[in-house]
Design a protein around this nucleic acid. Structure first.
Lengths: 170, 170
DNA sequence: AGCCGATCTTTGAAGCCTAAAATACCTTGC
DNA sequence: GCAAGGTATTTTAGGCTTCAAAGATCGGCT
């Protein structure tokens, strides 16, 4: 392979000149910006309208989908946050009367958390508004755009999961 | 309008039955999941490889692009975090010798922050690896996918910005 | 029965983050 | 010159988050 002064193309030159991944980097930064932007606004509105934080909202959202309650470990997995984190989060929502907590009948290590009636009602209001907020934030996208984005994000998610799995056990 | 037992379709029934925005909601949750997944992994690797947190990395990344330094307000805008937050962040990085901080010559209210030589060197190492991590996390997407995703996220970003602006000053 | 490793939760130390109030400095208009 | 209003930063109080270590309980094995 090869004339003298002819520059090698990116493919053949991978060793001497390490690949340029600026495109992926820009993509990641844009993804992060979008999420941060929307998340910040949701956070702001939750606080303003309902005086509630996003983590608390998320926690109640999980419980709303599970009428029989969930253990802290279940919640931890579903919310992708640490176990220790939930202890305090739940504590505050129990104190404010939104959540109920009792030791599992079958496993005394486990705490089963569920929404109180008051908590469920209050969350219902939040959830409805929240859905409208999200709709308005994404209003600039056509139905087709949303479908495409959905598909690409699914692909991104599985790409990332794969890379993470490979790194953990190479 | 209307026959008796015939159900109205979604379009004509917008008032009685408020619109269903579950599609947007699912899209948002997927966007959030992707970002959280990738961000968590980057955070984990930064900690493991360099014993540095993501906020510190982000801060140094901003400064690396600005050889003449930036004020706290500049940083605050670029990083989309609160001003008070930066005070402590910068404080710790000054203490560890990564950052330099001096009062502006032209405005004694302002603090100009910049990377020290040591900070710049260390950040160089991190940046290179970080770029590879991101590339591997997005490796499952074709070049075409990345372009499409980039475009759709740009659209999402401007959609969100518009909705936020309209809410603030309706 | 009793021990052992695994699982569920809490605690502690450190850091990140925000909103809001306080402080310091600048700029403009008189 | 100097007061009023605006800008840059810090402080304060409260909450979220993680990791790592400790405590409690479970289940299987001998």
């Amino acid at each position: 392979m090869s004339g003298h002064a002819i520059p090698l193309d990116a493919e053949t030159n991978a060793v001497a000149m390490p690949e340029d991944h600026r495109e992926e980097l820009r993509l990641w930064l844009r993804l992060l910006t979008c999420t941060t932007l929307i998340e910040g606004e949701v956070r702001r509105r939750l606080r303003q309208r309902f005086d509630v934080t996003l983590p608390r909202f998320d926690l109640m959202a999980q419980l709303e989908k599970a009428p029989d309650g969930l253990t802290l470990s279940d919640l931890s997995k579903r919310m992708m946050v640490s176990n220790g984190n939930l202890t305090g989060l739940v504590e505050r929502l129990v104190a404010s009367g939104h959540l109920d907590r009792r030791t599992s009948q079958t496993d005394r290590r486990s705490q089963v958390i569920s929404l109180t009636e008051a908590g469920r009602e209050e969350f219902g209001l939040m959830m409805a508004e929240h859905e409208d907020w999200i709709a308005s934030l994404f209003a600039g996208l056509s139905s087709r755009d949303r479908q495409d984005l959905m598909r690409l994000l699914a692909k991104t998610k599985s790409s990332a999961r794969k890379a993470i799995a490979e790194e953990s056990a190479p």
